[in-house]
Simulated assay, not measured.
Amino acid sequence: MSAAPARLLTGLRTGLFGTRANTLITLATLLLLSQVVPPLLRWALLDATFTGNADACTRDGACWAFVTAKLRFILFAFYPPDLQWRPTLVILLLAAILSLSALPRFWGRPLLFAWPLTILACWLLMQGAFTDTQIPSNQWGGLPVTLFVWAVCFAAATPIAVLLALARRSKLGGLRTFSVLYIELMRGTPMVGILYVAMLILPMALPDGLSIDKMLRAIVMVTLFWAAYIAEVIRAGLQAIPGGQTEAATALGLSYWRTQQLVILPQALRIVIPAMVNLAIGFLLATSLLAVIGIFDLLNAARASAADPKWLGFYNEAYLVVAAVYFVICFAASRYSRWLEDRLKAGRREP
């Protein structure tokens, strides 16, 4: 046996049975799995129905025929079927810009210009631009809405959060007070409350005759809300940088903004990579709260699909599909965080 498999087996044996406590925990886990896994496999595979209609499905097994019939609705909700290539293209565009943003070799000014262009293209595609049919945002839904709101809000909130974090550490009392009040107010308000402000209060604050699309109002308010949370994470990274580095940069003649750009922020952002990815995952899951203002995100579309009178009650299958989508995205983000930490050598100390 080669060295790598041998080390793996040794690690597993030590971790699972190395101590009496580990052995008891391992045996208890195996016992629990023996009680849970066989019924789950029986429900998901052996007694499942893969084809047919709702009458062919039984309550003893999963009805994967429901998933086949309603998958397009789960992914795209009420978007017109003949134009669903548009939200599909939106998903691909968002996946492409997120993939490019994840690779350090593409970090630079071209990527900064690519983001607003991609967002504009996605918005126009979802609206049905350049066609005879305009698609109102009430018909948007499913995975494109979840990814669009998540990507746009997180991307727009991050630069705002950097400014808020710097303002909270500023020596200017008024600026620091404003930042503290803003951050604490937003962090002390539930996201549901922010969404109700976007839905009910913001339209009343607009001048007569001026209206803003519901989706756009939600994106603006969610961006401002998320910025407060990201600001605190970035502030933690800023506090981890020794003050001597700022003094050294000042002694070299660098201005405040050049010091932050070239010396402080690159190090601070490296330190908070795990926390930022954790926030991004949490924000992705929080997009399900858009349902409270009538926006059909992925989870809400899945719930609505199981309310179809022809396929009534198959909520387990619908939620499993959504859970699988969320898991793939979140697991990929988690692994990316580990890779980026190793790539940038974040948090490592030289011996």
Rank of each mutant, 00 (worst) to 15 (best):
A62H: 07
T259Q: 11
Y256N: 03
L254C: 06
A291I: 06
M215E: 00
Y319P: 09
A157N: 04
L299G: 11
G244K: 00
P242I: 02
T259F: 03
I293Y: 01
L285G: 12
A286T: 10
G244Y: 03
G193C: 08
I97Y: 00
I91P: 08
L75T: 04
I119Q: 07
L124K: 07
I241W: 03
L312T: 01
L103T: 09
V180Q: 08
L111H: 04
T10G: 15
A332F: 09
K171T: 14
R348W: 12
L164N: 06
E184G: 05
D132M: 13
R72I: 09
T250D: 10
V263H: 00
Y256M: 02
F17S: 02
S2H: 09
A165G: 03
F148P: 06
V90D: 13
T49A: 10
G237T: 04
A280E: 01
A304Q: 14
F76M: 05
P80C: 06
Y79R: 00
V272G: 06
R343L: 12
I293G: 08
W85Y: 14
L98V: 12
R338L: 11
A62N: 06
R72Y: 05
T51I: 11
V67N: 00
N22G: 07
W85H: 09
K310R: 14
L83S: 05
A161E: 08
R109Y: 15
D47V: 06
A333S: 08
M276L: 15
